[in-house]
Amino acid sequence: MNVLEIRNLTKKFGDFIAVDNMSLNIREGEIFGFLGSNGAGKSTTINMISSLLRSTKGDIEVLGRNIATNGKFAKMNIGIVPQDISIYENMTSYENVSFFAGLYGLRGNLLKERTEEALDFVGLGDKAKSFPKNFSGGMKRRLNIACAIAHRPKLIIMDEPTVGIDPQSRNYILNSVRKLNEMGCTIIYTSHYMEEVEEICTRIAIVDHGKIIADGTKEQLKAIITDTKNIWIEIKATDSPSIDSLKQIQGVITAQLEDNTIKINSKGEINNLNRVIQQLIKDGIEIRSVEEQAPNLETVFLTLTGRNLRD
């Protein structure tokens, strides 16, 4: 069954088109990743799904019902983890979760049970009576998640839930996503960190300029770029190679210098490694290592958009 169906969804802010005629189906049990750089239109899309923004055009169906006519039904079945931490600093963790869950109709003992369950789930059970103003970034992010799940939504939408936190909290959150999924929740996960998306998502859509430019499992996405290869050349940190002259070499699609590594994306069928190395030697660059990278989502993104994800 499709938990979410989006058809020809468009959102304009004035003349600017933030989401451009997007169509998409998400099936029950998926962890669906929205991968795209900042400003791609990920948040705008999920804000329309969760009724925070009105669409300019197009339809959204949640569990088979159009949200324009069944707004309340859709809201009851969605839990949203906003990109910006959305909690009351002057209320305890418990009060935060309990207040929001209460808005979904939970009362009395059930409300208490679900609130405690949600706090335990994100590992804040012992912080129930603490105020979030003293929390670390990671703890706030986890509370942000607890507030979204206490009412046991079928579809959980997480908008960049790991921005600005320590690796430990990040792992905790990624594990929570898996656990929620095992418990039967369908999940939409947006991120501009490709490692995360690659690690947990069962299906991924690459979003750019408000459009889905590719969509499939990570294997399917990587298969798109078998006709290109990625060569990473580590050089002496103080050297400054001429990237432009590398781009002139036949077959090279893009070339970039990141820290002390030259990242070259090149056509697969052309053997140009020799010429690249000759060029670098001619420029007096000291080469430390050369390796060919297996394709990953970043290189997929690079190939499809000609840009880096982090740009």
């Binding site: 009724s51 009851m76 949203i80």
Partner: peptide, 13 residues
């Protein structure tokens, strides 16, 4: 300013 408006808007209230 606290961004909690987002949650309120997303809730069935």
């Amino acid at each position: 300013t606290r961004q909690t408006a987002i949650r309120l808007m997303a809730a069935p209230i």
